[in-house]
Amino acid sequence: MEMKSELNLALHPVTAPPELWERVQSARVRRPQTTSRGFVWAMAATVVLAAVALSLVRSPARQDPPLTAFHCQNPAQLRAWVKANTGFNVPLRAALPASIQLIGARAREGRVEIAYRAGNRDATLLVSRANAGEVSVPHSQVNGKASSWVMDGQRFTLACNDSADFQLACKLCHLD
């Protein structure tokens, strides 16, 4: 009984500070009032219908080349997928070090882009057909964050978020 009366005294209701209204008002300005669920659904449906209509209108006039993507962390499987979809032979290492994590690849218009993480940052290896006569061109640094070379008739372009990641990013194909 004594505990309950102590709790009643200690936890009594209080008056909200006057500045609470200002806080709510300023937050409302920063975060506009959410509209009703029905309105949101109606808007979403409108956007989807507009996108479908746009794609139907555009499709006869302009055929975008098909984009195929493959999310995969296994280098052997990814290498096989790239070979099957583009004909490129990308010499990925069979066993990647822990610092390299594959994300996947996407292919379009005779080129393939392999996305992965080197350390904690993104890196991309773009592979395309080399120009006629270009059989082998040594590595060339573009701006410290990208490097390009030609090997076996394929042009490779490696791009990193940070030039410091370059050595690490090379381990996608090269040994330590």
């Binding site: 209701p13 209080v14 008056t15 909200a16 500070p17 500045e19 609470l20 806080r23 709510v24 937050a27």
Partner: peptide
């Protein structure tokens, strides 16, 4: 407002947290 703020204050034990919760 007082009911909302009171619950927030008594639950959090912290006036700044109570303001955030009430908001």
């Amino acid at each position: 407002k007082d009911r909302v703020y009171s619950i927030a204050l008594r639950y959090s034990g912290n006036p700044a947290a109570a303001m955030d919760i009430a908001q």
